[in-house]
Structure formats: C-alpha cells, structure tokens
C-alpha cells in the first residue's frame, strides 16, 4: 500500500500538482465549495425525513429531484479528494484522521445499501400513508451523524504531521 502511494505521488501528474503553489489550495477550495453548495442536499433530505423542513412537500419528489445534484456534488468531492490524495499520498496513508474518514465513507456506502430497500425506494409509500416510519427517521439521524463525522475527520487531517523520516527509515530497513 505504501509502495503504491509512493509510486502514485511520484507520477508526473501528481509531482507537477505538488510542486505548483496554487493547485493544492484551488483543489481544496473546490472540495469546500462542493460541501457548501451540495452539503445542504443531504441535510435537507434527512431533515425532511424527520419532518423538520418542507413537511408538506412529498418525500418521493424530493428524493428524486435532488438525486442529480447529489451525484454532481459527490463527483466534485471525489475528484478533488483523489487529486489531494495523489499529491501527498504517503502522508495521507499514515494519517489517522484519513483512516477515520475512509472508514466513515465506507459506512456511508453501507448506510445507502442498508436503507435503500426500507427507506429511500419506499418514499412514495410514506407520502401515501402520510406518515414517516421510525426506520426512516433512524436512517436520517445516522446519515447526519456520519456526515458530521466525515467533516470532523476531514478537518482533522490537516492537523496531523506524519513523521515521514520514520516512515522512510522503516521502508528502507525492510
């Protein structure tokens, strides 16, 4: 894994990105712009399931209407994330907050799969019944917690300075 990280960040593309003074802050800015402009979509969907906002609007329409924008936001987030990872791959790979973030990201995937059948594809039934079942509210709360965790882990990454000399020495000794 570390060998891959070192190869990745040594490629011409990521070396050029790392050596430019403005590419990293621009990519980081785009990452934050994606959070600012698209993060609200998740918050709104979850709060709607909890009945806290737009309570008189059908859930099915909201889930369907926001899907395209959510995909746009996720794509932008991921592209920026991959570019940032590539420029400093070995630093990220040894950063505990990065590990936490990747773990939480996997849980977001598990969450989507776990609740797709019981919540997100059943939105029209909730609208017809005029009532949101408990499981949908549980899904919404877990979603909000996971994304809050992702935010905290993401911010934490910048506060850890990995001991690269030690890492390099270990690799060399091996």
């Amino acid at each position: 894994m570390m060998a891959f990280a070192q190869w990745l960040q040594a490629t011409a593309l990521f070396t050029a990105l790392r050596e430019s003074w403005y590419v990293y802050p621009v990519v980081l800015s785009l990452h934050l712009v994606a959070i600012a402009l698209f993060g609200g979509l998740i918050v709104i969907t979850d709060l709607r399931l909890l009945g806290l906002v737009l309570a008189d609007q059908p859930i099915a329409g909201m889930v369907k209407g926001l899907r395209g924008l959510k995909h746009m936001g996720a794509t932008l987030l991921f592209l920026c994330g991959i570019l940032m990872f590539g420029t400093k791959a070995e630093e990220y790979l040894t950063n505990p907050f990065f590990h936490a973030k990747m773990g939480l990201l996997m849980l977001v995937g598990v969450h989507a799969m776990a609740f797709r059948g019981s919540v997100y594809s059943k939105a029209a039934e909730f609208d017809a019944a005029g009532k949101v079942p408990g499981i949908a509210k549980v899904a919404a709360v877990i979603s909000l917690l996971l994304w809050t965790g992702l935010l905290i882990a993401g911010r934490g990454i910048g506060y850890v300075e990995p001991d690269l000399d030690r890492i390099h020495a270990q690799l060399w000794l091996r």
Binding site: L37, V43, I44
Partner: peptide
C-alpha cells in the same frame, strides 16, 4: 464548515 453547509447549502438549493 457545518454552518456553511447548512446556510449556503440551503441558499444553493
């Protein structure tokens, strides 16, 4: 950041 995700996020919608 959480505040701007909600504040700017709802403006953006």
């Amino acid at each position: 950041i959480a505040g701007l995700a909600v504040g700017i996020g709802t403006i953006a919608i």
